[in-house]
Amino acid sequence: MLIPVIIAVTFVLFVILSFAPGDVVKTILGDEATEEQIAELKHELNLDQPLLIRYARYMMDACRLDFGNSWTSGYEILPEFSRRLPYTLLVTTLSVLFAVGVGIPLGIASAIKEHSILDYGCTFLVMLLASMPAFWLGTLCQILFCLTLRWLPVSGVGSWRHFILPSIILGASTLATMIRMSRTSMLDVIKMDYIRTARAKGADEKKVLYHHAIRNSLIPVITQIGISFAGGIGGAIVTENIFAIPGIGVMLVNAVKSRDVPVVMGVIIFVTIIVGIINLIVDLICAVVDPRIDFAS
């Protein structure tokens, strides 16, 4: 499944980049370049070739793991990407862990205590988190926790404390999703007949909850975790820029700004692969939790 996805993603991206306004040659050479210089550089970057041929060439090279060099800065893409990826993965993973660790217990608790103060509080929190964009929430938190209270560093990656705020900001919208999903899912499950069966067997509320309800209610939530993880890598672009984390998000934004096609292409291919792997892992976890999922089918 991953290979057709990569081909589709890269092709669409390649076409968009080719037709996007802005000229990479002018960006590199500046406004005072002569006609010959421009023509020479275009030839060097293969930009004088038709689109399909350029795409085919790029993909052939990519298959040999040659993703080329950055047009604007000249660095090799693969090592640069490998150097930056851990930061992004770390922030994204921490953000998902934060969202899952806080969101699922809150969601389940608000389902069990439906219409309680806790439940209404969680609903309020969900609305708040879901409606605040990360760049705005991030800036507000920077002002409060870093500048006013001086609890945390503003930006950079010097120590573990640098990662706290970015992870929370990146995880905020996922947290909202997790609370809402696990609440809804739990409310569905506790109305199920098998929960009534468990009670009729003589199980107390604690056993009903831990032995019967939670595992069933987590099944849809786990699928959502995978989707959120993929979304988190996208969201990292914004968060990394706010907190000056040298991850792939910053790399991608700079490349797009300067029409640096090989960098954009390379980053997107890697991200597609990573998201694919995450989805595979999520599917495997789902199959472990839910016996109705059969590997064979």
Binding site: Y194, A198, A200, G202, A203, N216
Partner: peptide
């Protein structure tokens, strides 16, 4: 709790949904 399932038990209408699918 001691009564349910021990001295009085119940069989429900729909066997399709009255068993926990993950156990």
């Amino acid at each position: 709790l001691g009564l349910r399932g021990r001295r009085i038990s119940m069989i429900f209408q729909d066997p399709m949904t009255s068993l926990n699918p993950v156990k």
